[in-house]
Computed example of a mutant assay.
Amino acid sequence: MKCHVNLVKAEEITLQEMAINHRFKNTRRRATGLLMLARGDKPKVVCEALGVSDQAVYNWAHAWRIGGVCALMGGHNG
């Protein structure tokens, strides 16, 4: 299963800001995970570092490819 994320500079900056400043912890965690995948970390490393399942990491990468930032925010996008 493919789990690499390619980011343009604007997306990287957005994810960095979300990882630091977003209101919800799980959104900060997702943004951090995607940044880690974008820099080349393996899904196993990401899941261990963030304390989530490997399936969650694959789901984040898939959601990002499908819907970008809106998909990343999950249930908190009102």
Rank of each mutant, 00 (worst) to 15 (best):
D41P: 02
R30L: 01
A71V: 07
K2N: 07
Q16M: 13
G74E: 06
C3T: 09
Y58V: 07
V46I: 10
L15Q: 08
G74H: 01
G75E: 05
G74V: 01
V8D: 15
V5Q: 10
A31E: 07
H4V: 00
F24T: 13
G68W: 00
L72K: 01
M18R: 14
D41E: 11
R39W: 10
N21A: 12
N26G: 11
M1Q: 01
T32W: 04
L50D: 08
A10R: 15
N6S: 09
H22N: 15
T14F: 00
A71D: 11
E48A: 09
T27N: 08
I20N: 11
W60P: 03
C3Y: 05
K9I: 12
M73E: 11
C70V: 13
A38S: 07
G78P: 09
T14K: 13
I13Y: 14
A19G: 13
A63S: 03
Y58C: 07
E48C: 11
L50C: 03
R39L: 04
W64D: 09
L72S: 01
E11F: 04
H62R: 01
K9S: 14
A31Y: 07
G68C: 11
R30V: 02
L50E: 09
R29S: 02
E12C: 12
C47G: 08
T32S: 05
V52Y: 07
V5R: 09
T14G: 00
I20W: 04
D41G: 06
K2G: 10
E11Q: 15
Q55E: 06
C47I: 06
L7T: 05
L37K: 00
K9W: 03
A71Q: 05
Q16K: 15
R29A: 11
G51N: 04
K44T: 04
K42G: 06
M18I: 15
L34Q: 08
